[in-house]
């Protein structure tokens, strides 16, 4: 038979065991709760990091796109400025040449002579009779120097040739068109043709001179 003291000891033991188990349960719950919070914090940190990275990527992509647009817009503007000045050069050249043919007749006469000789050097081998086409304005000027022109041409080509002056049906700023008598071979040495030639052959050089001193 158990005494009441022994029963009391047993009861105390039952109570202690229950208390201990309860404490264990609460302790484990607290640990698990901490884990849940910690994991959430970790995940939240990753979410924030990911959101930030995405936002920064978007911002950078947008700004890069703006920079690229700006660069190509300004590059196009720079090309327009260069073309504008090339046009300006040739417009002014055109006007200067017009003025030159009218106001510097003596010098222009020498230029015409040179242009005829230069043309003959190019097509002289194709005949002995050549036609010089000039503007009506320059016809008389060229007729005045025709005898000396024939002599220079003979010396240059090493044989006698015949030169005939005709009024060109088409007006040009200045210069000449020299052709064989039958018109099959010709050399266009008008100012317009020479301007075109300069544009084709010297455009790069003109760019360099025009924008000399520019950092590349």
């Amino acid at each position: 038979m158990a005494t009441p003291e022994l029963i009391e000891i047993l009861k105390q033991e039952i109570y202690n065991l229950a208390k201990k188990e309860a404490e264990e349960i609460l302790k484990e719950a607290k640990i698990n709760a901490s884990k849940i919070i910690e994991e959430a914090k970790q995940k939240a940190s990753e979410i924030l990091k990911s959101r930030l990275e995405k936002s920064l990527r978007d911002i950078r992509r947008t700004m890069n796109s703006k920079m690229m647009s700006l660069r190509s817009e300004k590059k196009a503007e720079l090309i327009r400025v260069r073309e504008e000045y090339i046009d300006k050069v040739f417009n002014r050249v055109y006007k200067h040449l017009q003025e030159f043919t009218v106001n510097h007749r003596n010098e222009y006469s020498q230029v015409l002579s040179n242009l005829v000789i230069e043309s003959l050097k190019e097509i002289g081998e194709y005949g002995d009779e050549f036609v010089i086409l000039v503007n009506s304005r320059d016809e008389e000027l060229l007729r005045n120097i025709l005898p000396s022109l024939v002599n220079v041409a003979a010396k240059t080509l090493g044989r006698k040739i015949t030169l005939t002056i005709h009024k060109s049906p088409v007006e040009f700023i200045g210069g000449v068109i020299v052709s064989t008598r039958d018109g099959r071979i010709y050399y266009n040495n008008t100012f317009e043709a020479r301007i075109q030639h300069v544009k084709e052959k010297y455009l790069e050089k003109i760019y360099d001179l025009l924008f000399e001193g520019r950092e590349s």
Partner: peptide
Amino acid sequence: LAEKNLDKVIEFVIRLIL
């Protein structure tokens, strides 16, 4: 630069043409 060099370039082109 183009404004500064313009006259010089025009003169160069005119000499080439003439």
